[in-house]
Design a binder for these strands. Structure first.
Lengths: 288, 288
DNA sequence: GCATCAAGTCCATATTGTGGACATATAGGA
DNA sequence: TCCTATATGTCCACAATATGGACTTGATGC
C-alpha cells in the first residue's frame, strides 16, 4: 500500500503533507466534488486516515462536505486565503483582459494555465461565441507538462535541461494516460513551439480537439503560466494557427508587461520563488 | 495568548489543525508577511514545531518564505486553490462592480468583508479619489464581529440568539483589544443597525475614522458578507450617513440578486454551509 | 425485505511529532 | 572591523499521536 511515501527526505509533519495532498485532489475536482471512495483510491490512504484528515480540513473550513451526496468540496476558507494570496500575485487579474479579448477575437475557448512542478493546472476558462466547443480541458484539471497546448508551451519555454528533467519525471504518466503524448511523440512539437514562439496541440489529447498556446514569464525569467485557444480541428487550419498564434504572442507580451509593472511597485514583495534544483524524484527537495 | 483554540472536540489530525492555523495567521498578514518569532508568539507553538509545520506548508507551496527577510507569505498554491474554490462561490466577482460604484460615488474607501465564525475578515479594499483616507482596516485583517461598520452590520443581521452567542464568545477579546467596543457599548449600535438596515461605526475602532456598512445574505438567509464605506468623521455627518446608507442598501440588493442568480444555475452546488449542530446522529462531538 | 456497497467509527499498536538545548545567521553598535 | 544581541534553524530522546483492520451504520437497488 502507500507506495507513494518516498524513502527518505520530507521529515516531519507528514499528516500535513497528506492533508494538503487531499486539498489539492479536491481542488482538481472542485466543480463536481469528490467522494471518499475516490479519495481513498487516489491517495492510497486508509479510509479512517483520509476521513480524519478531511475532518481537520473541514474544521478549518478549507473543505466542505455536501450533506446530501457526501461529496467533498473546497470550502470558504480556501477561497478567502486565495483572495488574500492574490494580493501578492494575481494572475487571474493580470490576464483577464487578454483572455476576454482572445475569446472575442477567436470565438473559441481560451484557457489560462499555470505551472506546478512537473504539471500544468488550468486556472480559468473563457468561452467564445462559436457554438461548437471542445471540452478536453476544464478548470482545475492537471496535466503533465506537455499535454495540451498551454502545457506544451510552458514545457517548451523551459531551459533544455529542465525540459528533459520534467519529461523524465513524467515519462510513465505520459505514456500511460496519454497514448499520443509520449516524450518521443512530444519532442518535435516542443522543438517547433520553442522556435515558433507558440505551441500547437494537433489533437494529441482528444482527437479533433486542436489548440494553440503561448507561455509567459515573470521578469526573473521563470515561466509563470500559459494562455491557449482550443477549437475543433476544422477551425484550426494552418492559416488560422498563424493568426491565433500571432494573437497569442501579442497578448502574451501585454501580460508580461503587466506582470512587470506589478512587480515594479512593491520593492519588497519579490515573489520568493527561484527554486532551481534538480530534485531526484518526488518531493525530495529540502533545505540544507 | 492563543484564545482561538476551540474548547472541545477536535480529536485527531492535530498537526493539520495547527498547520492550517498557521496558514490563517499568515493570511492575516498576507501583505507584509510574518516572521517566525511572531508566529511562535501568536500561536504558542514551540519554534521547532512551528518551523516543521511551515516546512510542510512550503513543501506544498501553500506558503513561501522570502529568502531575504525570512518572512513567511502565502504561496502560489494557496492562490491556485482559491481560484478553484472561486468556482463555487466567488464573492469578489459578485461584488466587484458594487464596490467600484460605491468608491466612485463616495470618493471614500470601500471594503468587502466576510464572516468567519465569530470574526469578520476584510477581503478587499477599493479606494476612492478623496485624498484623505482612513487606514483602520486593511485587507486580511480580522476583527471580532461588531468591530467596524461591516462587521457590525453582519452582527446586527444575525438572529438575536446567535448575536448574543457571538458576543459572549468574543466578550474578552472585545473589551481587551477594542476599549470602545465592549458588548455593552456595541448594543445600541447593533439595535440601530438592525432597524435602519445599515450600521454606523462612529469612530469606535479609531477616533475620527467613521464608517457605514450593510450586510448581505445568501438565498438561504445566512449572512454572506458586508460592504462598508469609511471616511474621516468630517465627511460622515448625519446627512451623508443617510446618503451613503441608501447607496449601500441599493448595492446590497444588487449583490443579493447576483448571488441568487449564481445559485440558481448549478442545482447541486448548494454552498454546504451551516455549522448547524446535530447533523442527525454522530456520536463524535457530543461532549457538551 | 434482503443483499450490496459506501460512509463513518473504534481501539490496541508503534510510528510520529514534540520541545529543551544547541548551532548558526543577521543586525547593530562602538 | 570586531563583538554582542537577537532571531532563525536543527538535533534527538521521549511520549504523545496517528494508524488501519475490523466493525457498525446508512443508503440503494432488486
Amino acid at each position: 500500500m502507500n507506495v507513494d511515501t518516498p524513502p527518505v527526505e520530507s521529515i516531519g509533519a507528514q499528516s500535513v503533507d497528506r492533508a494538503l495532498g487531499l486539498l489539492s485532489l479536491i481542488g482538481r475536482n472542485a466543480s463536481e466534488g469528490v467522494n471518499l471512495s475516490v479519495i481513498v483510491a487516489d491517495t492510497g490512504l486508509s479510509r479512517p486516515t483520509a476521513r480524519r484528515l478531511l475532518l481537520a480540513l473541514m474544521r478549518a473550513r478549507m473543505v466542505e462536505q455536501d450533506a446530501k451526496n457526501r461529496r467533498y468540496f473546497l470550502g470558504q476558507e480556501t477561497y478567502v486565503l486565495g483572495v488574500l494570496a492574490a494580493q501578492r500575485f494575481d494572475l487571474m487579474d493580470l490576464t483577464r483582459d487578454s483572455l476576454l479579448r482572445l475569446a472575442e477575437l477567436s470565438g473559441d475557448t481560451v484557457f489560462l494555465s499555470v505551472r506546478r512542478d512537473a504539471y500544468s493546472v488550468c486556472l480559468h476558462k473563457e468561452e467564445g461565441t462559436f457554438p461548437i466547443r471542445t471540452n478536453a480541458l476544464q478548470v482545475g484539471h492537471r496535466h503533465p507538462l506537455g499535454v495540451g497546448a498551454g502545457s506544451l508551451a510552458m514545457l517548451a519555454a523551459l531551459p533544455a535541461a529542465e525540459r528533459a528533467e520534467v519529461l523524465g519525471r513524467n515519462a510513465d504518466v505520459l505514456g500511460d494516460g496519454f497514448p499520443d503524448c509520449t516524450p518521443e511523440a512530444l519532442a518535435p512539437h516542443i522543438d517547433e513551439a520553442a522556435v515558433r514562439g507558440y505551441a500547437l496541440n494537433p489533437g494529441l489529447v482528444l482527437t479533433n480537439s486542436w489548440a494553440v498556446g503561448a507561455a509567459f514569464r515573470t521578469p526573473d525569467g521563470n515561466v509563470a503560466g500559459a494562455i491557449s485557444i482550443a477549437a475543433i480541428d476544422s477551425r484550426m487550419g494552418p492559416d488560422r494557427q498563424l493568426e491565433l498564434g500571432a494573437a497569442l504572442r501579442l497578448e502574451m507580451e501585454k501580460i508580461e508587461k503587466r506582470i512587470e509593472q506589478t512587480f515594479a511597485l512593491p520593492a519588497s514583495a519579490g515573489l520568493a520563488q527561484g527554486r532551481r534544483r534538480k530534485t531526484g524524484k518526488g518531493p525530495s527537495d529540502n533545505e540544507k
